Amino acid sequence: MSKKERRSYDKSFKLMAVELHRSGKPAGTVAKELGIGVDMVRRWSREYGVHDTRSFPGNGKQDLTPEQKEIQTLKKALQEAEMENRILKKAVSIFSREDNKCSGS
């Protein structure tokens, strides 16, 4: 069995394919002209329709709005604070158990 090499396309190529498709050419025709799959043209067009200029950031990176970046940062800070809180609760319970052992009860 041979492994297919995964091809990658840059943002300008994807935008060109989307523009051709949006200009009225069928996805099958665009795909055949560019040598790519029909599903890719449809997926890129759908993604462009949803994200517009933030489409195709590259290499799995998300192109977030400033508000989305702030939300992501705040969520990360909240998770860290919750983890610290859990650790401190465990530490308090461990130290309170050790205090009872030393008290001679």
Results as ranks from 00 to 15, higher is better:
residue 1 M to K: 06
residue 1 M to P: 03
residue 1 M to V: 07
residue 2 S to R: 14
residue 2 S to M: 10
residue 3 K to G: 06
residue 3 K to E: 13
residue 5 E to F: 05
residue 5 E to R: 10
residue 9 Y to D: 03
residue 9 Y to M: 02
residue 10 D to V: 00
residue 10 D to K: 06
residue 11 K to L: 04
residue 11 K to H: 08
residue 12 S to W: 06
residue 12 S to R: 09
residue 12 S to Q: 14
residue 13 F to N: 00
residue 14 K to E: 02
residue 15 L to E: 04
residue 15 L to K: 03
residue 16 M to I: 04
residue 16 M to F: 09
residue 16 M to K: 11
residue 16 M to V: 04
residue 18 V to A: 01
residue 18 V to E: 00
residue 19 E to A: 08
residue 19 E to F: 03
residue 19 E to C: 08
residue 23 S to I: 00
residue 23 S to H: 04
residue 24 G to E: 02
residue 26 P to R: 11
residue 29 T to G: 03
residue 30 V to H: 01
residue 31 A to Y: 01
residue 32 K to R: 15
residue 33 E to P: 00
residue 35 G to W: 03
residue 36 I to K: 02
residue 38 V to I: 12
residue 38 V to Q: 10
residue 39 D to C: 11
residue 39 D to I: 06
residue 40 M to H: 11
residue 40 M to S: 15
residue 41 V to R: 00
residue 41 V to E: 02
residue 42 R to T: 07
residue 43 R to S: 13
residue 43 R to W: 06
residue 43 R to Q: 12
residue 43 R to C: 08
residue 44 W to K: 01
residue 44 W to C: 00
residue 44 W to D: 00
residue 46 R to T: 10
residue 46 R to G: 03
residue 46 R to M: 07
residue 47 E to T: 11
residue 47 E to N: 13
residue 48 Y to Q: 03
residue 48 Y to S: 05
residue 48 Y to E: 04
residue 48 Y to F: 15
residue 49 G to E: 14
residue 49 G to A: 09
residue 50 V to H: 13
residue 51 H to N: 14
residue 51 H to V: 05
residue 52 D to R: 13
residue 52 D to Q: 13
residue 53 T to S: 13
residue 55 S to R: 08
residue 56 F to L: 05
residue 57 P to C: 06
residue 58 G to D: 00
residue 58 G to K: 02
residue 58 G to L: 02
residue 59 N to P: 00
residue 59 N to E: 09
residue 60 G to C: 05
residue 61 K to A: 06
residue 61 K to G: 03
residue 62 Q to S: 15
residue 62 Q to P: 02
residue 62 Q to V: 08
residue 63 D to M: 11
residue 63 D to G: 03
residue 66 P to V: 04
residue 66 P to R: 02
residue 67 E to K: 12
residue 67 E to F: 05
residue 67 E to L: 11
residue 68 Q to A: 15
residue 69 K to M: 11
residue 69 K to A: 14
residue 69 K to F: 01
residue 71 I to D: 09
residue 71 I to N: 07
residue 71 I to R: 13
residue 72 Q to Y: 07
residue 73 T to Y: 10
residue 74 L to I: 08
residue 74 L to M: 12
residue 77 A to S: 14
residue 77 A to E: 15
residue 78 L to G: 07
residue 78 L to N: 14
residue 78 L to C: 11
residue 79 Q to T: 12
residue 81 A to G: 03
residue 82 E to D: 13
residue 83 M to R: 14
residue 84 E to C: 06
residue 85 N to C: 12
residue 87 I to D: 10
residue 87 I to F: 04
residue 88 L to R: 14
residue 90 K to D: 13
residue 91 A to V: 07
residue 91 A to E: 14
residue 91 A to H: 11
residue 92 V to E: 12
residue 93 S to E: 15
residue 93 S to R: 11
residue 95 F to D: 08
residue 95 F to S: 10
residue 96 S to W: 02
residue 96 S to P: 01
residue 97 R to W: 06
residue 99 D to R: 13
residue 100 N to H: 07
residue 100 N to D: 15
residue 100 N to S: 12
residue 101 K to C: 06
residue 101 K to E: 15
residue 102 C to N: 09
residue 102 C to M: 10
residue 102 C to F: 07
residue 103 S to H: 07
residue 103 S to K: 10
residue 103 S to P: 00
residue 104 G to N: 11
residue 104 G to Q: 09
residue 105 S to Y: 10
residue 105 S to T: 07
